[in-house]
Design a protein around this nucleic acid. Structure first.
Length: 468
RNA sequence: GUCCCCAUCGUCUAGCGGUUAGGACACCGCCCUUUCACGGCGGUAACCGGGGUUCAAGUCCCCGUGGGGACGCCA
């Protein structure tokens, strides 16, 4: 039987990073078994579902690179099918109308809480002989009263829940629309889902869903409940912990594969390996090896993973993701050094793409002023003389290559009888405007002959005036 | 409150009865170095507690404790 997995978010906000992790697990499980991965939008709550959220989910899945084979399938387009199954349950006697009002239900719950019991429906309408006329009703599933439901969870192991802990859940609201726990059952069955992989906040729903599947005579899929991701305060990861929407990670300068890599290693490991290509992920990941304990999201580690990718990915691939940031930061790289060469020169010192984009502006645009601290520290009384000598020697260079530039700078140092430490920093500030850049030969080579010499000239004026 | 899940360095984890408890991030040193980084080397740091089982327990069982989740005409 072909493996079929699904990711089934509800469109009530952005695509949550925790959702991405369970989606990743589902995606990996499908891919490694040559199966199908399905995207289903659980939008039965029309009050809270929005088109923007649907768009955000699709955009997020696309950015992070989790491609689906079927979908997006919308539950709101399947209401006829749900009605059909509800009728079947009714006909079978496995569901019934309940006429209790919301107020009555609240009251029962409060009473139970007061008695230190688990709040649940008391079954008042379960065996009603006559239907009270004129009162609106919901439809409830008739859950078995006794016996255990056993889940052989792929991640958590064996979980046993007694039916006495469960109650008769509502499967259709008074307006006739179906509810989550019911639509999930119908959809997972209709879509032939073989492995239900989701967050462990759904563990409590699973026995109810299994009971409904049994009532409908369907085969029970396998379940895998992944633990939640916690924030650094030990609470479930949420907005107050910072970035939770996937697209925020793009905005912050992360490479999608790096985010995936981090998420994969959160709660799963393979020997001492930290970096996994897509192919390795698909090949090595095992649902059964996922840690059952919740783990804490650590941005530092994510940044480290991101750095590894920036350091090793082919420049073309970096550029693919970097371009968005260049556009955001309005940096036009069409005039100036080849962007790929710039990436090579800077990749070892960038934590994020956002940072990388911000640090290469001086190759393409003239800076308006020198970084105040840098100028103060490195432009001294002797600077004009040093820079002049550099200008003379560099101007005389027959070819503008990193090797030639390095030799020329060394030569200048020798002639001035100064160490590199006295010459380098001033030169750097002169051509980049600040105190940080790759090695000077590389930097000058990238900036180009004309611009370098022009900036040197400007710096001599600036420093001369300063000490005039 | 009731039910469910969980428990190794600060964090992510390895460990599947006998280990000097390993790796990674972070942190701290040292080295490399014209800056910032990268890199290299080294270091600090953990088995929640109590009972069992066993010749032997981080590893198995039970009970606590702690954390998380669920208890909606939300998903």
């Amino acid at each position: 039987m072909t493996v079929r997995t699904r990711f089934a978010p509800s469109p009530t906000g952005y695509l949550h990073i925790g959702g991405v992790r369970t989606a990743l697990y589902s995606w990996l499980h499908a891919r490694q078994n040559d199966g199908k991965f399905i995207l289903r939008i659980e939008d039965t709550d029309r009050e809270r579902s929005t088109q923007e959220s649907v768009d955000a989910i699709i955009e997020g899945m696309d950015w992070i690179g989790l491609d689906y084979d079927e979908g997006p399938i919308f539950q709101t387009e399947r209401f006829d099918r749900y009605a059909e199954v509800i009728q079947q349950l009714l006909d079978q006697g496995d569901a019934y109308h309940c006429y209790c009002t919301k107020e009555e239900l609240v009251e029962v719950r409060e009473q139970q809480r007061a008695n230190k019991e688990k709040p649940r429906y008391n079954g008042k309408c379960r065996d009603l002989d006559e239907e009270p006329d004129g009162r609106e009703s919901v439809i409830r599933f008739k859950n078995p009263l006794e016996g255990d439901v056993v889940i052989d969870d792929l991640i958590k192991g064996k979980i046993v829940i007694n039916n006495r802990e469960l109650d008769d859940l509502i499967i259709a609201r008074s307006d006739g629309t179906p509810t989550y726990n019911f639509t999930v059952v119908v959809d997972d069955i209709d879509m032939g889902i073989t492995h239900v992989i989701r967050g462990d906040d759904h563990i409590n729903n699973t026995p109810r869903q299994i009971n409904m599947m049994k009532a409908l005579g369907y085969q029970i899929p396998k379940f895998a409940h992944a633990p939640m991701i916690l924030g650094d305060d030990g609470k479930r990861l949420s907005k107050r912990h910072g970035a939770v929407g996937v697209m925020q990670y793009r905005d912050d300068g992360f490479i999608p594969q790096a985010v995936l890599n981090y998420l994969l290693r959160l709660g799963w490991s393979h020997e001492d390996q930290e970096i996994f290509s897509r192919e390795e992920m698909i090949k090595l990941f095992k649902l059964e090896e996922v840690n059952g304990a919740p783990s804490t999201f650590n941005t530092q580690k994510l940044i480290w993973v991101n750095e590894q990718y920036i350091k090793t990915l082919p420049a073309d691939e970096i550029l693919q993701h970097l371009q968005w940031h260049l556009d955001q930061q309005k940096l036009d790289t069409s005039n100036g050094p080849a962007i790929r060469d710039v990436i090579e020169a800077h990749r070892d010192r960038a934590k994020t793409l956002k940072e990388l984009a911000a640090s290469i502006r001086y190759y393409y645009e003239d800076f308006k002023e020198y970084d105040e601290k840098a100028a103060k520290k490195h432009f001294k009384t002797a600077t004009p003389g040093i820079l002049q000598k550099l200008l003379d020697n560099l101007s005389a260079l027959p070819e503008w290559t990193a090797e030639a530039i390095e030799a020329s700078i060394k030569k200048t140092c020798d002639e001035l009888e100064l160490g590199m430490g006295k010459v380098g920093p001033a030169l750097r500030v002169a051509v980049t405007g600040a105190a940080v850049s790759p090695s000077l030969d590389t930097t000058l080579a990238l900036i180009g002959r004309d611009k370098s010499l022009e900036r040197l000239q400007k710096a001599i004026h600036f420093a001369t005036e300063k000490y005039a």
